[in-house]
């Protein structure tokens, strides 16, 4: 057997798995989306229908806000934890990464405990301000839940990337007169860019498609996964839910590709 045919042989199982678990169901989904009463234009409905459009926009905005907030919070925390040794550090890392194992339902439950009708924030605010603040069942509750979900993952990625940073790069910048802020801007963040893009992409995709948290908080939050769920189980509208699913996938993929090209230059250079 030649070397080449051996490689091809090894690729066969990969091709089979790819076909069985990725290509076929996806193709089925694509076809189902076009098999409704409206036919192929079902896909256009995602954009044309004002309700769908609003939901899509809502979802993208929520995911984008989650990603940005997660990256900022996790970068600051991750860098700090990587660089400082203090008593309680290990405990703090453990607490911060504890939610990693939780499913969306548990996260949703925790948000209700925090900001729900009987939640901590409501209790404290009604006592201090005489006004009960409750936001668990809205898009803000969902935002908080996604933050809770994403921050641990991103912190771990940032800490791993920060550990690999050559400390003499920062020392060189400082010797040239760089303030701490300039060091962060010109040395640390460019070096972390690949990790930021990768973990940001995961945070974004998760926030676009997560369902459990939204479902736990309320059934009437306008995000795409909820819409797909209601179209599918309540309205029995198979074609629409398939078309919306494809739309969700394409949209997420497009935005991630866009982000990657924008940051591509700095990533390539820092790599």
């Amino acid at each position: 057997m030649s070397h080449k045919s051996f490689v091809w042989m090894c690729l066969l199982p990969l091709a089979a798995v790819t076909a069985a678990f990725f290509v076929l169901p996806m193709a089925h989904l694509l076809v189902t989306g076009a098999e409704g009463p409206r036919g192929l234009p079902e896909y256009l409905a995602i954009i044309a229908d004002p309700r769908y459009r609003a939901t899509l926009l809502n979802t993208v905005l929520l995911a984008a806000a989650t990603t940005v907030a997660t990256l900022i919070a996790a970068t600051i925390t991750g860098l700090f934890l990587q660089r400082h040794r203090f008593p309680g550090r290990a405990v703090m890392i453990a607490i911060l990464t504890f939610p990693l194992a939780f499913p969306g339902v548990v996260i949703g439950f925790m948000i209700i405990l925090l900001a729900g009708r009987q939640g901590t924030i409501g209790d404290v605010s009604s006592r201090l301000l005489g006004d009960k603040i409750v936001f668990a069942y809205s898009i803000y509750g969902l935002f908080l839940g996604y933050l809770y979900f994403s921050i641990p993952r991103v912190i771990l990625t940032i800490m791993a990337a920060a550990q690999k940073l050559d400390p003499s790069l920062e020392e060189a910048a400082r010797s040239l007169g760089a303030s701490p802020w300039a060091v962060l801007r010109d040395v640390v963040l460019p070096a972390l860019a690949p990790a930021l893009v990768a973990s940001g992409a995961i945070a974004f995709a998760t926030a676009m498609g997560a369902f459990g948290t939204a479902f736990t908080l309320a059934t009437n939050i306008d995000v795409l996964p909820m819409l797909i769920y209601t179209e599918f189980t309540l309205a029995g509208n198979l074609a629409t839910s398939a078309a919306l699913s494809v739309g969700l996938g394409v949209m997420t993929w497009l935005i991630l590709a866009l982000a990657r090209t924008f940051t591509g230059n700095s990533v390539a250079a820092a790599g």
């Binding site: 020392e171 060189a172 010797s175 010109d186 040395v187 790599g271």
Partner: peptide, 16 residues
Amino acid sequence: RNVGMVFQSYALFPNM
């Protein structure tokens, strides 16, 4: 301190 440093690893900025 206005010191010029040359490191063993050179520590050149890869993004510049």
